[in-house]
Protein backbone atom coordinates (compact mmCIF):
# COMPACT_ATOMS: atom_id res chain seq x y z
CA UNK A 1 0.00 0.00 0.00
CA UNK A 2 1.27 3.48 -0.76
CA UNK A 3 1.19 6.04 1.96
CA UNK A 4 0.76 9.77 1.57
CA UNK A 5 2.17 10.42 4.99
CA UNK A 6 4.34 8.33 7.21
CA UNK A 7 5.37 9.32 10.68
CA UNK A 8 8.00 7.09 12.22
CA UNK A 9 8.91 6.98 15.89
CA UNK A 10 7.82 10.53 16.62
CA UNK A 11 8.64 11.76 20.13
CA UNK A 12 7.99 15.14 21.60
CA UNK A 13 8.46 16.35 25.16
CA UNK A 14 7.34 19.62 26.68
CA UNK A 15 9.00 21.04 29.74
CA UNK A 16 6.78 19.19 32.17
CA UNK A 17 5.51 16.15 30.31
CA UNK A 18 6.03 13.76 27.44
CA UNK A 19 3.44 14.64 24.78
CA UNK A 20 4.28 11.89 22.30
CA UNK A 21 6.37 8.82 22.75
CA UNK A 22 7.61 6.84 19.80
CA UNK A 23 4.43 7.19 17.81
CA UNK A 24 4.32 5.82 14.26
CA UNK A 25 1.41 6.13 11.90
CA UNK A 26 1.08 5.57 8.19
CA UNK A 27 -1.76 7.14 6.27
CA UNK A 28 -2.74 5.33 3.05
CA UNK A 29 -3.62 7.35 -0.03
CA UNK A 30 -7.29 8.18 -0.53
CA UNK A 31 -8.35 6.99 2.88
CA UNK A 32 -10.19 8.59 5.74
CA UNK A 33 -7.93 8.03 8.67
CA UNK A 34 -9.42 8.37 12.13
CA UNK A 35 -7.02 9.70 14.74
CA UNK A 36 -8.63 8.92 18.05
CA UNK A 37 -7.78 9.41 21.65
CA UNK A 38 -9.05 10.98 24.82
CA UNK A 39 -8.40 14.63 25.68
CA UNK A 40 -4.76 15.36 26.30
CA UNK A 41 -3.55 12.14 24.70
CA UNK A 42 -1.29 13.95 22.24
CA UNK A 43 -3.46 14.09 19.12
CA UNK A 44 -3.14 17.84 18.68
CA UNK A 45 0.60 17.65 19.23
CA UNK A 46 0.90 15.00 16.55
CA UNK A 47 -1.20 17.07 14.14
CA UNK A 48 0.85 20.17 14.87
CA UNK A 49 4.02 18.23 14.13
CA UNK A 50 2.57 17.01 10.83
CA UNK A 51 1.53 20.55 9.86
CA UNK A 52 4.99 21.75 10.96
CA UNK A 53 3.61 24.22 13.45
CA UNK A 54 5.91 22.73 16.04
CA UNK A 55 9.00 20.62 15.66
CA UNK A 56 9.64 17.09 16.89
CA UNK A 57 12.34 15.89 19.24
CA UNK A 58 12.98 12.77 17.22
CA UNK A 59 11.46 10.68 14.46
CA UNK A 60 10.94 10.94 10.72
CA UNK A 61 8.14 12.32 8.60
CA UNK A 62 7.74 11.50 4.94
CA UNK A 63 5.22 12.93 2.54
CA UNK A 64 4.64 10.87 -0.61
CA UNK A 65 7.76 8.94 0.22
CA UNK A 66 10.12 11.90 0.54
CA UNK A 67 11.02 13.77 3.73
CA UNK A 68 8.44 16.41 4.59
CA UNK A 69 9.61 19.93 3.72
CA UNK A 70 8.18 23.30 4.74
CA UNK A 71 7.04 23.93 1.17
CA UNK A 72 4.75 20.89 1.33
CA UNK A 73 2.69 22.56 4.00
CA UNK A 74 0.76 23.99 1.06
CA UNK A 75 -0.34 20.49 0.12
CA UNK A 76 -1.96 20.11 3.53
CA UNK A 77 -5.20 21.68 4.65
CA UNK A 78 -5.72 21.95 8.38
CA UNK A 79 -8.91 22.71 10.23
CA UNK A 80 -7.87 23.08 13.87
CA UNK A 81 -10.18 22.22 16.73
CA UNK A 82 -9.85 25.68 18.24
CA UNK A 83 -10.54 27.82 15.23
CA UNK A 84 -11.51 31.36 14.53
CA UNK A 85 -11.67 34.04 11.91
CA UNK A 86 -11.04 37.76 11.82
CA UNK A 87 -14.33 39.05 13.20
CA UNK A 88 -14.29 42.40 11.49
CA UNK A 89 -13.33 41.12 8.05
CA UNK A 90 -15.69 40.33 5.22
CA UNK A 91 -16.23 36.66 4.36
CA UNK A 92 -15.00 36.92 0.77
CA UNK A 93 -11.98 39.00 1.60
CA UNK A 94 -11.00 36.73 4.44
CA UNK A 95 -11.21 33.58 2.35
CA UNK A 96 -9.19 35.24 -0.41
CA UNK A 97 -6.55 36.21 2.12
CA UNK A 98 -6.33 32.75 3.67
CA UNK A 99 -6.16 31.16 0.22
CA UNK A 100 -3.33 33.47 -0.79
CA UNK A 101 -1.45 32.60 2.37
CA UNK A 102 -1.71 29.00 1.17
CA UNK A 103 0.01 30.01 -2.03
CA UNK A 104 -2.88 30.51 -4.45
CA UNK A 105 -2.82 33.53 -6.71
CA UNK A 106 -5.61 36.06 -6.39
CA UNK A 107 -7.15 34.87 -9.64
CA UNK A 108 -7.05 31.17 -8.80
CA UNK A 109 -8.47 31.84 -5.37
CA UNK A 110 -11.31 33.89 -6.86
CA UNK A 111 -12.22 31.14 -9.33
CA UNK A 112 -12.20 28.43 -6.69
CA UNK A 113 -14.11 30.50 -4.20
CA UNK A 114 -16.85 31.06 -6.73
CA UNK A 115 -17.36 27.33 -7.09
CA UNK A 116 -17.58 26.76 -3.34
CA UNK A 117 -19.89 29.71 -2.77
CA UNK A 118 -22.25 28.27 -5.34
CA UNK A 119 -21.94 24.76 -3.97
CA UNK A 120 -22.80 25.83 -0.43
CA UNK A 121 -25.29 28.39 -1.70
CA UNK A 122 -23.71 31.17 0.31
CA UNK A 123 -23.21 33.75 -2.43
CA UNK A 124 -24.96 36.41 -0.38
CA UNK A 125 -22.38 36.06 2.37
CA UNK A 126 -19.49 37.50 0.38
CA UNK A 127 -19.78 41.00 1.81
CA UNK A 128 -20.94 40.03 5.27
CA UNK A 129 -18.73 40.56 8.26
CA UNK A 130 -17.76 37.35 10.03
CA UNK A 131 -19.19 38.63 13.30
CA UNK A 132 -22.63 38.80 11.68
CA UNK A 133 -22.60 35.08 10.93
CA UNK A 134 -23.85 32.37 13.26
CA UNK A 135 -21.38 29.87 14.67
CA UNK A 136 -22.48 27.19 12.21
CA UNK A 137 -22.11 29.58 9.30
CA UNK A 138 -18.61 30.48 10.47
CA UNK A 139 -17.74 26.78 10.57
CA UNK A 140 -18.82 26.47 6.97
CA UNK A 141 -16.55 29.35 6.00
CA UNK A 142 -13.71 27.68 7.87
CA UNK A 143 -14.32 24.43 6.09
CA UNK A 144 -14.10 26.23 2.75
CA UNK A 145 -10.87 27.89 3.88
CA UNK A 146 -9.42 24.48 4.69
CA UNK A 147 -10.19 22.76 1.42
CA UNK A 148 -10.05 25.68 -1.02
CA UNK A 149 -6.46 25.23 -2.13
CA UNK A 150 -7.21 21.60 -3.01
CA UNK A 151 -4.68 20.02 -0.68
CA UNK A 152 -3.69 16.39 -1.09
CA UNK A 153 -4.03 15.84 2.62
CA UNK A 154 -6.72 17.38 4.77
CA UNK A 155 -6.58 17.27 8.53
CA UNK A 156 -9.89 17.88 10.25
CA UNK A 157 -9.93 18.25 14.01
CA UNK A 158 -13.46 17.85 15.35
CA UNK A 159 -15.04 19.19 12.15
CA UNK A 160 -18.64 18.74 13.24
CA UNK A 161 -18.75 20.81 16.38
CA UNK A 162 -21.15 23.69 16.02
CA UNK A 163 -23.07 22.17 13.14
CA UNK A 164 -26.71 21.30 13.21
CA UNK A 165 -27.56 17.82 11.84
CA UNK A 166 -28.45 19.18 8.39
CA UNK A 167 -25.17 21.03 7.95
CA UNK A 168 -23.21 18.22 9.57
CA UNK A 169 -24.51 15.86 6.92
CA UNK A 170 -23.63 18.37 4.17
CA UNK A 171 -20.07 18.46 5.47
CA UNK A 172 -20.04 14.68 5.75
CA UNK A 173 -21.02 14.41 2.11
CA UNK A 174 -18.27 16.86 1.18
CA UNK A 175 -15.70 14.82 3.05
CA UNK A 176 -16.75 11.64 1.26
CA UNK A 177 -16.75 13.43 -2.06
CA UNK A 178 -13.24 14.74 -1.45
CA UNK A 179 -12.08 11.24 -0.58
CA UNK A 180 -13.61 9.89 -3.81
CA UNK A 181 -11.75 12.55 -5.76
CA UNK A 182 -8.48 11.30 -4.31
CA UNK A 183 -7.90 13.43 -1.27
CA UNK A 184 -6.65 11.80 1.88
CA UNK A 185 -8.27 12.88 5.11
CA UNK A 186 -7.07 12.65 8.68
CA UNK A 187 -10.02 12.90 10.91
CA UNK A 188 -9.57 13.57 14.60
CA UNK A 189 -12.61 13.28 16.80
CA UNK A 190 -14.25 12.00 19.91
CA UNK A 191 -17.51 11.29 18.21
CA UNK A 192 -17.42 7.59 17.59
CA UNK A 193 -20.54 7.43 15.47
CA UNK A 194 -18.82 9.56 12.83
CA UNK A 195 -15.78 7.32 13.04
CA UNK A 196 -17.98 4.28 12.38
CA UNK A 197 -19.56 6.11 9.52
CA UNK A 198 -16.57 7.65 7.79
CA UNK A 199 -13.23 6.16 8.69
CA UNK A 200 -11.43 3.40 6.81
CA UNK A 201 -8.40 3.39 9.07
CA UNK A 202 -8.08 4.13 12.72
CA UNK A 203 -5.24 4.85 15.12
CA UNK A 204 -5.80 5.28 18.82
CA UNK A 205 -3.46 7.36 20.91
CA UNK A 206 -3.59 7.25 24.67
CA UNK A 207 -1.23 8.79 27.18
CA UNK A 208 1.16 9.87 24.44
CA UNK A 209 1.48 6.41 22.95
CA UNK A 210 -0.21 4.70 20.06
CA UNK A 211 -2.13 1.73 21.39
CA UNK A 212 -4.09 0.65 18.35
CA UNK A 213 -3.74 0.97 14.60
CA UNK A 214 -5.30 -0.65 11.55
CA UNK A 215 -8.28 -0.75 9.22
CA UNK A 216 -11.61 -0.52 10.90
CA UNK A 217 -12.60 -3.98 9.74
CA UNK A 218 -9.39 -5.60 10.97
CA UNK A 219 -9.72 -4.00 14.33
CA UNK A 220 -13.27 -5.17 14.74
CA UNK A 221 -12.37 -8.70 13.74
CA UNK A 222 -9.48 -8.58 16.15
CA UNK A 223 -11.74 -7.62 19.01
CA UNK A 224 -14.73 -9.79 18.39
CA UNK A 225 -14.95 -12.70 20.76
CA UNK A 226 -17.83 -14.94 19.70
CA UNK A 227 -20.43 -12.98 21.52
CA UNK A 228 -24.03 -12.82 20.42
CA UNK A 229 -26.69 -10.44 21.42
CA UNK A 230 -30.23 -11.75 21.51
CA UNK A 231 -33.70 -10.57 22.32
CA UNK A 232 -36.38 -13.00 23.30
CA UNK A 233 -39.78 -13.46 24.90
CA UNK A 234 -40.72 -16.05 27.46
CA UNK A 235 -39.04 -17.35 30.54
CA UNK A 236 -35.45 -16.36 31.28
CA UNK A 237 -33.12 -18.70 29.48
CA UNK A 238 -31.08 -21.15 31.43
CA UNK A 239 -27.72 -19.88 32.57
CA UNK A 240 -26.17 -23.33 32.50
CA UNK A 241 -25.54 -24.77 29.06
CA UNK A 242 -22.89 -26.73 27.21
CA UNK A 243 -23.40 -24.53 24.16
CA UNK A 244 -23.03 -21.04 25.58
CA UNK A 245 -22.06 -19.01 28.62
CA UNK A 246 -24.60 -16.46 29.71
CA UNK A 247 -22.95 -13.16 30.30
CA UNK A 248 -25.78 -10.79 30.73
CA UNK A 249 -29.53 -11.12 30.90
CA UNK A 250 -31.69 -8.04 31.21
CA UNK A 251 -35.39 -7.90 31.78
CA UNK A 252 -36.95 -5.27 29.53
CA UNK A 253 -40.76 -5.32 29.90
CA UNK A 254 -43.47 -7.94 30.43
CA UNK A 255 -41.58 -11.09 29.54
CA UNK A 256 -39.11 -9.54 27.13
CA UNK A 257 -35.40 -9.90 27.66
CA UNK A 258 -32.12 -9.07 26.04
CA UNK A 259 -28.98 -11.02 26.70
CA UNK A 260 -25.34 -11.46 25.83
CA UNK A 261 -24.06 -14.95 25.25
CA UNK A 262 -20.64 -16.21 24.53
CA UNK A 263 -20.39 -19.22 22.30
CA UNK A 264 -18.34 -22.04 23.75
CA UNK A 265 -15.45 -23.42 21.75
CA UNK A 266 -16.20 -25.57 18.69
CA UNK A 267 -19.86 -24.69 18.62
CA UNK A 268 -21.50 -23.13 15.57
CA UNK A 269 -23.99 -20.28 15.71
CA UNK A 270 -26.65 -22.59 14.28
CA UNK A 271 -26.35 -24.88 17.27
CA UNK A 272 -26.81 -21.90 19.49
CA UNK A 273 -30.00 -20.87 17.72
CA UNK A 274 -31.32 -24.40 17.99
CA UNK A 275 -30.61 -24.41 21.68
CA UNK A 276 -32.26 -21.05 22.16
CA UNK A 277 -35.50 -21.58 20.27
CA UNK A 278 -36.24 -24.54 22.49
CA UNK A 279 -36.10 -22.25 25.51
CA UNK A 280 -37.86 -19.11 24.34
CA UNK A 281 -39.41 -17.10 21.50
CA UNK A 282 -36.35 -15.61 19.76
CA UNK A 283 -36.87 -12.08 18.41
CA UNK A 284 -33.36 -10.99 17.48
CA UNK A 285 -30.11 -12.72 17.05
CA UNK A 286 -26.96 -10.88 16.14
CA UNK A 287 -23.28 -11.43 16.37
CA UNK A 288 -21.92 -8.76 18.61
CA UNK A 289 -19.34 -6.90 16.52
CA UNK A 290 -17.67 -4.56 18.95
CA UNK A 291 -18.40 -0.90 18.24
CA UNK A 292 -15.50 1.53 17.93
CA UNK A 293 -16.98 3.24 20.92
CA UNK A 294 -16.69 0.14 23.10
CA UNK A 295 -13.20 -0.66 21.84
CA UNK A 296 -12.15 2.91 22.52
CA UNK A 297 -13.51 2.92 26.06
CA UNK A 298 -12.12 -0.49 26.83
CA UNK A 299 -8.63 0.43 25.68
CA UNK A 300 -8.57 3.81 27.34
CA UNK A 301 -10.07 2.80 30.67
CA UNK A 302 -8.38 -0.58 30.81
CA UNK A 303 -11.69 -2.42 31.42
CA UNK A 304 -12.22 -5.56 29.42
CA UNK A 305 -14.22 -5.16 26.25
CA UNK A 306 -16.80 -7.54 27.66
CA UNK A 307 -17.37 -5.35 30.68
CA UNK A 308 -17.75 -2.30 28.49
CA UNK A 309 -20.22 -4.09 26.26
CA UNK A 310 -22.20 -5.28 29.25
CA UNK A 311 -22.32 -1.74 30.51
CA UNK A 312 -23.53 -0.33 27.22
CA UNK A 313 -26.17 -3.08 26.97
CA UNK A 314 -27.38 -2.18 30.45
CA UNK A 315 -27.51 1.43 29.39
CA UNK A 316 -29.76 0.43 26.49
CA UNK A 317 -32.10 -1.51 28.71
CA UNK A 318 -32.15 1.37 31.15
CA UNK A 319 -33.26 3.70 28.41
CA UNK A 320 -36.04 1.39 27.42
Amino acid sequence: MSYILEAKNISKAYASHQALQDVSIAIPHKSIFGLLGPNGAGKTTLIRIITQIIGRDSGDLTFNGAPLTPAQVQKIGYLPEERGLYKKMKVGEQLLYLAQLKGLSHKEAMAKLKIWFEKFDIKTWWNKNIEDLSKGMQQKVQFVATVLHEPELIILDEPFTGFDPVNASIIKQEILELRDKGTTIIFSTHRMESVEELCDHVALINKSQKILDGTKRDIKTQFKSNIYQIEYQGKPISDVSSIYTLIENNHLEDNHYNALLQLNAHVSPNQLIKELIEQAELHAFQEKIPSMNDIFISLVTGKSLLTVEQESLRAVSFEE
Partner: peptide
Protein backbone atom coordinates in the same frame (compact mmCIF):
# COMPACT_ATOMS: atom_id res chain seq x y z
CA UNK B 1 -4.34 39.76 21.03
CA UNK B 2 -7.26 39.66 18.60
CA UNK B 3 -5.58 36.89 16.64
CA UNK B 4 -4.86 34.89 19.73
CA UNK B 5 -8.21 35.29 21.44
CA UNK B 6 -10.25 34.64 18.28
CA UNK B 7 -8.08 31.57 17.56
CA UNK B 8 -7.60 32.65 13.96
CA UNK B 9 -3.94 32.20 14.67
CA UNK B 10 -4.38 28.42 14.80
CA UNK B 11 -5.62 28.56 11.22
CA UNK B 12 -2.97 30.95 9.93
CA UNK B 13 -0.04 29.39 11.67
CA UNK B 14 -0.40 26.25 9.55
CA UNK B 15 0.36 28.29 6.44
CA UNK B 16 2.93 30.80 7.68
Amino acid sequence: WEEKSSRIVEVIISSV
